[in-house]
Design a protein around this nucleic acid. Sequence first.
DNA 1: GATGAATGAGGCTTCATTCAT
DNA 2: GATGAATGAAGCCTCATTCAT
Lengths: 233, 233, 233, 233
Amino acid sequence: MLAKPAFEVQSLVTDAELVKKRRAQIIAAAVDLFAHQGYYKTTIQDVAKRAGVSAGLIYQYVRDKEDVLLLSVLDVLESYKQEIPAAIAGLTDPLERFRAAIMAYCRVVDQRREATVLAYRSTKSLSSERRQLIMASEIETNALIAKCIQDGIDAGLFRDVDAALATDHFVSLAHSWALKHWRIKPVAGFERYVEEGFDFLVHALLTEKGWKHYRKLQAEKDGKEKKKPSKAR
Amino acid sequence: MLAKPAFEVQSLVTDAELVKKRRAQIIAAAVDLFAHQGYYKTTIQDVAKRAGVSAGLIYQYVRDKEDVLLLSVLDVLESYKQEIPAAIAGLTDPLERFRAAIMAYCRVVDQRREATVLAYRSTKSLSSERRQLIMASEIETNALIAKCIQDGIDAGLFRDVDAALATDHFVSLAHSWALKHWRIKPVAGFERYVEEGFDFLVHALLTEKGWKHYRKLQAEKDGKEKKKPSKAR
Amino acid sequence: MLAKPAFEVQSLVTDAELVKKRRAQIIAAAVDLFAHQGYYKTTIQDVAKRAGVSAGLIYQYVRDKEDVLLLSVLDVLESYKQEIPAAIAGLTDPLERFRAAIMAYCRVVDQRREATVLAYRSTKSLSSERRQLIMASEIETNALIAKCIQDGIDAGLFRDVDAALATDHFVSLAHSWALKHWRIKPVAGFERYVEEGFDFLVHALLTEKGWKHYRKLQAEKDGKEKKKPSKAR
Amino acid sequence: MLAKPAFEVQSLVTDAELVKKRRAQIIAAAVDLFAHQGYYKTTIQDVAKRAGVSAGLIYQYVRDKEDVLLLSVLDVLESYKQEIPAAIAGLTDPLERFRAAIMAYCRVVDQRREATVLAYRSTKSLSSERRQLIMASEIETNALIAKCIQDGIDAGLFRDVDAALATDHFVSLAHSWALKHWRIKPVAGFERYVEEGFDFLVHALLTEKGWKHYRKLQAEKDGKEKKKPSKAR
DNA sequence: GATGAATGAGGCTTCATTCAT
DNA sequence: GATGAATGAAGCCTCATTCAT
């Protein structure tokens, strides 16, 4: 999924349509391979073979191997920036919006679990210049979450905490699912992990007023679903 | 700091004392280099030079380069297992113990920030067999925290949550300081990050009874320190 | 300047006029690039871009990259064969003709200094078959000079030396200006280099009779120019 | 022949004796291959094989392939700087010394004909920094010749010409033997080429006094040798 | 005739590992 | 036990050449 073209990376090929197509091909192969065997253990030949192109071709679309990594990581991060807004579109209640945003974040992390780990591990392998792009993308995503929290604060549902710092706890929730999957999965499936994780953290955020609202929403949900009552109350 | 010898790694040299000394030498150099330039960009020759030994020597104390990584990461993780018990020794109050444990965790992460990132990034580079050792170490550390939480639950100070899952949120707090340092540092120094982070998360844990106790402890602390009142209440 | 079409090089294109035009385009770009960055550091893509054509096009007018080099070097050598006869046309005095020939040689070398160096450096890079063409061209040029010397000998102005061997000294004069430019230029500009160089070498050639004639010509020239009296007498 | 160690090129190996030996090995192979097939057509693997070492080894003694070229060319140029002083040591007569110097120059060029061509062709392939070293070496050699000429001028044997410019003509004589060998060899063997070449050029240099001296030396030589009377008188 | 995307062979270089001293 | 020179496999990247459009 090549969300937003990383126009910063130059290509020798001029046809924009082709560049987009080829890059998608290359990045799809690269994300897959990098995520599973790591950046350094994956050769450009591997990527080429997986993408069904020649090794030389890759160098018509990226400058070097590191560029492939950059594009791969950006591709993952861009998918966050796509999914979160999509998930909260249409929702108006601040608490619901916030919940939906976190759930969407967790969901996309789950869908691209290995890729998320890749993004985590590989940023340091990039040149400082390229690392900036990654960081910028991460900041953008965080801003989406922070906005939800701030809206909750403004609505009196959340305590008046530093939205940016609070954001990190929820972001960590999503990331940890990928990073600590090996440990968490055995004790809790994705659903329970996310539900309980959110429930736990939101406890730290809700005001008295927020509490009532939260319980009402839970009740509605439980009514509809009649299942998975969270253990923590 | 080579806490507990990773006896699993074989050495050609028999003198245990010498093995310990040489490994400490090698690992100190390796952690430093791996943490700053990454595992793959660091050569064995680099490590040898930094450690003040010959490249050949290293192969008398480890099987291959990956062993050096394993020992390096274990070294970092061991330091967690050392610091946390040391920090809570002597404390009896469950809340105080828990707080001290988390603070110690954060502190050691801060002291070895780059090394913590190394541990995070590199686990996947290890062979599955070696990765088990890392995971085992992490589980041990987590158990230290989980025990504190369980004690709090048993004392009626914390809600009856899944201690293992709750542990993760606090562990993430410590790890995030290293992983997201570039983003967090500018908005909050270590002290504030840790204080507010703990305060935020503990909100999600405290029972009514726990609340009163927590406030009393805070008051005592503030009384002693008369500074840095946390913004979030 | 594509003096005489190197008809030996085959082209896929049949229209002779077009071949001539395209080759001139390609060679002009190639000479420039080869001369400045060397044959091996110049890619066909470079040449194509400079010539304003596609890389594929070049292969419709030459067999391979070496052909481009051959044509480039021939182009340079052909310009010698053009300039020298042009310079002595109209002159009848053997000494004047000789002088004019050498001066013309030096001048064209000066005008295409980098290209001359290219011709020097690159002959060995060509296949033996192609090298023959280069050598043949050089021999032709030398013959032009040798003829002048022989005429001088026949006129009793020059000693009865081996014209072919004597030719080399004067040819070296011209070539050295290009080859040793970096060293000579700082101590002597083109004018002085050529004047003194010719004056020096012609000393070795003149008979008693030639001497008188030479001095008369110099006097006439000095009379006209009233400047730059050569230091060597 | 590794005349003077090119200390400017760094090596990873510390043992100076070994560096000298290995470099000699590598350079001998490289000069040979570069001279015959050209720098770009020769691979490092070729050099390694010819030198009887592994490809990796070479990189313990040079930084990159260009360094091998630099050392190769310097090696050739250094041999000039060795031979010329050796040839004139013991001689006192300025004309004899000059003659001996030129003859030595021609002789060493003849002995390392292909290598001389290499030096000529390859200088431009070097980075500007490395090219400086080559130029410096060439200037040193020229200074040896220029000194001889100046001595001849001071002794009243040679005309008062610019010694540096006159040097070039004689240097060209030596170089041309290598560069134009394919053309000259068929018409004149080395002996005749050098004898006549020197005789020709020295004509341009001698004063009346020098002339007499030169003829006397020639007579002595002819008396001793009773052969090869030069055609030019 | 012209284009330029695609190919893939091949070279330079690095570096984990070995082993003779 | 320690050294460090030597090895050689392997990877990134370039670029001459081709060919479908």
